[in-house]
Amino acid sequence: MDIKQENRAGKPRRKILKAVLLHIVMVILSFLMITPFLWMVSTSLKNMNEMYAIPPIWIPREVMWSNYRYMFESAPWLLYFFNTVKVTGLVVVGQLVVCSMAAFAFSRLRFPGRDALFFMLLGTMMIPYHVTMIPTFQILRRLGWLDTHQALIVPALSAAFGVFLLRQFFMTLPRELEQAAMIDGCGYPRIFLNVILPNAKPALTTLAIFTFMGTWNDFLGPLIYLNSDHLKTLTLGLATFQGVYTNQWNYMMAGALIVSLPILIVYMFAQRYFVQGIVMSGLKE
């Protein structure tokens, strides 16, 4: 009782002090995290001579907005953008469906061979892609999928990472949730759709963010499986600024910034679901 009283008395000043301290710490830490990003912004606005200046210059004397114009004019970016949106969108949606179904079975149902199959899935993540790239390419060739978008979409749907992530989250949901539903006569599909999925929004959001980011930024996949210009994705477009001997950093950074902007927007938007998660699980108590 007297703890509460004391709190009430000292609350405003101590709370404000605490908040200010917290914000100072957060600002410093945030600054540590965004420095390279700021450097990208700065480099993207420099000319060649300032770009390589020693010691480095943070604010260019002459701000080269023209780098962005040059970058925009260098490739059919709108086409690349739509290609990337198509591939990324389908992979995110497809992966959420496929992985959440599998994760549901691996975490909430019992069936023979369950753990062995799950470990097999995990196992495929432990082999570096450098040795599986050629056989994967052979499969896609046999399927006639080389130089098509499905080569980037379909194999990405069965992602072991996604199953593992969702399984771990589904496991934290209390058993009572589905027991109550079972008593109400719900089958497994209903439990999956009406009980598990609504309670796993933070996890599904997390997977969506990662999948979005991974697919959007994927470079090696499109590079190996695509040849035609009209199918290319944004990351391949960026590579035009990379020569064998020289890199045009200022254009590359300008491009990289524009390309990563959608990920940032999606991430900030997706955070809303983190808060919703609290509300939902709070209600279930």
């Binding site: 079975a105 149902l109 495929t124 994967t136 194999p155 069965s158 072991a160």
Partner: peptide
Amino acid sequence: ETAWGYFFIAPMMIGFAVFMLYP
């Protein structure tokens, strides 16, 4: 439960068998 278990992992395992197991 077993049957539903296989049902739910089926899409995943088909993709897995085609694109991951062989490589």
